[in-house]
Protein backbone atom coordinates (compact mmCIF):
# COMPACT_ATOMS: atom_id res chain seq x y z
CA UNK A 1 0.00 0.00 0.00
CA UNK A 2 2.72 2.45 1.02
CA UNK A 3 4.55 1.57 -2.16
CA UNK A 4 1.51 2.36 -4.27
CA UNK A 5 0.87 5.70 -2.56
CA UNK A 6 4.50 6.71 -2.92
CA UNK A 7 4.57 5.62 -6.56
CA UNK A 8 1.33 7.50 -7.23
CA UNK A 9 2.71 10.71 -5.75
CA UNK A 10 5.91 10.32 -7.75
CA UNK A 11 3.84 9.62 -10.85
CA UNK A 12 1.98 12.91 -10.46
CA UNK A 13 5.31 14.74 -10.10
CA UNK A 14 6.78 12.90 -13.08
CA UNK A 15 3.72 13.65 -15.22
CA UNK A 16 4.18 17.32 -14.38
CA UNK A 17 7.84 16.97 -15.32
CA UNK A 18 6.89 15.32 -18.60
CA UNK A 19 4.28 17.95 -19.46
CA UNK A 20 6.86 20.68 -18.99
CA UNK A 21 9.39 18.74 -21.04
CA UNK A 22 6.94 18.28 -23.92
CA UNK A 23 5.40 21.73 -23.95
CA UNK A 24 7.44 24.46 -22.25
CA UNK A 25 11.13 23.73 -22.74
CA UNK A 26 12.28 25.02 -26.11
CA UNK A 27 15.48 26.58 -27.31
CA UNK A 28 14.94 29.84 -29.25
CA UNK A 29 17.43 28.54 -31.77
CA UNK A 30 18.20 24.87 -32.31
CA UNK A 31 21.90 24.32 -31.63
CA UNK A 32 22.06 20.54 -31.65
CA UNK A 33 19.69 17.87 -32.99
CA UNK A 34 18.40 16.97 -29.51
CA UNK A 35 18.08 20.39 -27.92
CA UNK A 36 17.36 20.92 -24.23
CA UNK A 37 13.99 19.13 -24.31
CA UNK A 38 14.75 15.61 -25.59
CA UNK A 39 16.70 14.35 -22.59
CA UNK A 40 14.00 15.23 -20.04
CA UNK A 41 11.46 13.61 -22.36
CA UNK A 42 13.42 10.36 -22.46
CA UNK A 43 13.86 10.41 -18.68
CA UNK A 44 10.20 11.06 -18.02
CA UNK A 45 9.27 8.14 -20.26
CA UNK A 46 11.63 5.79 -18.37
CA UNK A 47 10.42 7.03 -14.99
CA UNK A 48 6.75 6.67 -15.92
CA UNK A 49 7.33 3.10 -17.11
CA UNK A 50 9.10 2.22 -13.84
CA UNK A 51 6.36 3.84 -11.76
CA UNK A 52 3.59 2.07 -13.65
CA UNK A 53 5.39 -1.21 -13.02
CA UNK A 54 5.60 -0.49 -9.29
CA UNK A 55 1.92 0.50 -9.22
CA UNK A 56 1.06 -2.71 -11.00
CA UNK A 57 3.25 -5.00 -8.89
CA UNK A 58 4.32 -3.41 -5.59
CA UNK A 59 6.71 -5.63 -3.61
CA UNK A 60 6.82 -4.58 0.06
CA UNK A 61 3.59 -4.01 1.98
CA UNK A 62 3.47 -1.63 4.90
CA UNK A 63 5.95 0.82 6.30
CA UNK A 64 6.11 -1.02 9.63
CA UNK A 65 6.13 2.19 11.61
CA UNK A 66 4.07 2.40 14.78
CA UNK A 67 2.13 5.49 15.73
CA UNK A 68 4.64 6.32 18.46
CA UNK A 69 7.51 6.24 15.99
CA UNK A 70 5.53 8.39 13.54
CA UNK A 71 4.98 10.87 16.33
CA UNK A 72 8.66 10.96 17.17
CA UNK A 73 9.69 11.29 13.53
CA UNK A 74 7.27 14.18 13.05
CA UNK A 75 8.62 15.83 16.18
CA UNK A 76 12.18 15.42 14.90
CA UNK A 77 11.25 16.95 11.55
CA UNK A 78 9.47 19.84 13.25
CA UNK A 79 12.56 20.38 15.40
CA UNK A 80 14.80 20.36 12.34
CA UNK A 81 12.64 22.90 10.56
CA UNK A 82 12.56 24.99 13.70
CA UNK A 83 16.33 24.77 13.97
CA UNK A 84 16.65 25.92 10.34
CA UNK A 85 14.17 28.74 10.95
CA UNK A 86 15.94 30.04 14.04
CA UNK A 87 19.48 29.45 12.77
CA UNK A 88 20.08 33.03 11.69
CA UNK A 89 17.81 35.00 14.03
CA UNK A 90 19.05 33.33 17.23
CA UNK A 91 22.54 32.60 16.00
CA UNK A 92 24.42 29.33 16.03
CA UNK A 93 25.12 29.10 19.76
CA UNK A 94 21.62 29.67 21.07
CA UNK A 95 19.79 27.72 18.37
CA UNK A 96 22.16 24.78 18.75
CA UNK A 97 21.76 24.76 22.52
CA UNK A 98 17.99 24.67 22.11
CA UNK A 99 18.02 22.06 19.36
CA UNK A 100 20.62 19.80 20.97
CA UNK A 101 18.94 19.88 24.36
CA UNK A 102 15.41 19.26 23.13
CA UNK A 103 16.26 16.53 20.62
CA UNK A 104 18.56 14.58 22.93
CA UNK A 105 16.02 14.86 25.75
CA UNK A 106 13.30 13.70 23.41
CA UNK A 107 15.39 10.71 22.39
CA UNK A 108 15.83 9.65 25.99
CA UNK A 109 18.73 11.51 27.57
CA UNK A 110 18.34 12.71 31.15
CA UNK A 111 17.27 16.34 31.27
CA UNK A 112 20.40 17.74 32.91
CA UNK A 113 22.73 15.76 30.70
CA UNK A 114 20.77 16.80 27.63
CA UNK A 115 21.22 20.43 28.66
CA UNK A 116 24.92 19.80 29.19
CA UNK A 117 25.18 18.23 25.75
CA UNK A 118 23.30 21.11 24.12
CA UNK A 119 25.41 23.79 25.78
CA UNK A 120 28.63 21.93 25.06
CA UNK A 121 27.86 21.38 21.38
CA UNK A 122 26.66 24.95 20.91
CA UNK A 123 29.57 26.68 22.61
CA UNK A 124 32.31 24.23 21.66
CA UNK A 125 31.01 23.95 18.10
CA UNK A 126 31.06 27.71 17.70
CA UNK A 127 34.52 28.12 19.17
CA UNK A 128 35.91 25.23 17.13
CA UNK A 129 34.42 26.32 13.83
CA UNK A 130 34.73 30.09 14.06
CA UNK A 131 37.97 30.54 15.96
CA UNK A 132 39.92 27.47 14.98
CA UNK A 133 38.72 26.66 11.47
CA UNK A 134 37.69 30.18 10.48
CA UNK A 135 34.28 29.13 9.19
CA UNK A 136 31.33 31.43 8.83
CA UNK A 137 28.51 30.75 11.30
CA UNK A 138 25.65 33.06 12.19
CA UNK A 139 26.20 34.94 15.43
CA UNK A 140 22.53 35.84 15.53
CA UNK A 141 20.54 38.86 14.41
CA UNK A 142 19.42 39.43 17.99
CA UNK A 143 22.98 39.83 19.17
CA UNK A 144 24.38 41.82 16.31
CA UNK A 145 23.38 45.19 17.79
CA UNK A 146 25.02 44.07 21.04
CA UNK A 147 28.24 43.17 19.25
CA UNK A 148 28.23 46.41 17.36
CA UNK A 149 27.74 48.56 20.44
CA UNK A 150 30.47 46.76 22.30
CA UNK A 151 32.83 47.20 19.37
CA UNK A 152 31.94 50.88 19.18
CA UNK A 153 32.55 51.18 22.88
CA UNK A 154 36.01 49.71 22.44
CA UNK A 155 36.95 51.94 19.53
Amino acid sequence: MANRIFAAVLLVVTLGYAVIAFTTIKAPFQYDPLGPESWPRILSAVAILCLLFILWKPDADGLDVTRRVWFRLTAAVVLLFGYAELYEPLGFILSTILFGTILSAMLGAQKLRALGFGVASGVAGYLLCVTLMDLNLPEGALFEPLFETSQQGES
Binding site: A84, Y87, F92, F99, G100, L103, S104, S121, G125, C129
Partner: peptide, 22 residues
Protein backbone atom coordinates in the same frame (compact mmCIF):
# COMPACT_ATOMS: atom_id res chain seq x y z
CA UNK B 1 20.56 10.22 21.76
CA UNK B 2 23.69 12.38 21.60
CA UNK B 3 24.85 11.08 18.26
CA UNK B 4 21.61 11.88 16.46
CA UNK B 5 21.48 15.62 17.24
CA UNK B 6 25.21 15.79 16.52
CA UNK B 7 24.63 14.63 12.94
CA UNK B 8 22.13 17.42 12.39
CA UNK B 9 24.43 20.01 13.95
CA UNK B 10 27.35 18.91 11.75
CA UNK B 11 25.19 18.84 8.63
CA UNK B 12 23.84 22.32 9.35
CA UNK B 13 27.33 23.73 9.99
CA UNK B 14 28.58 22.20 6.76
CA UNK B 15 25.78 23.46 4.58
CA UNK B 16 25.50 26.89 6.15
CA UNK B 17 29.21 27.68 5.97
CA UNK B 18 29.32 27.17 2.20
CA UNK B 19 26.71 29.61 0.97
CA UNK B 20 25.43 31.18 4.17
CA UNK B 21 21.87 30.75 2.98
CA UNK B 22 19.32 29.44 5.50
Amino acid sequence: HYLTPLIAILAFIGIYTIVGNP
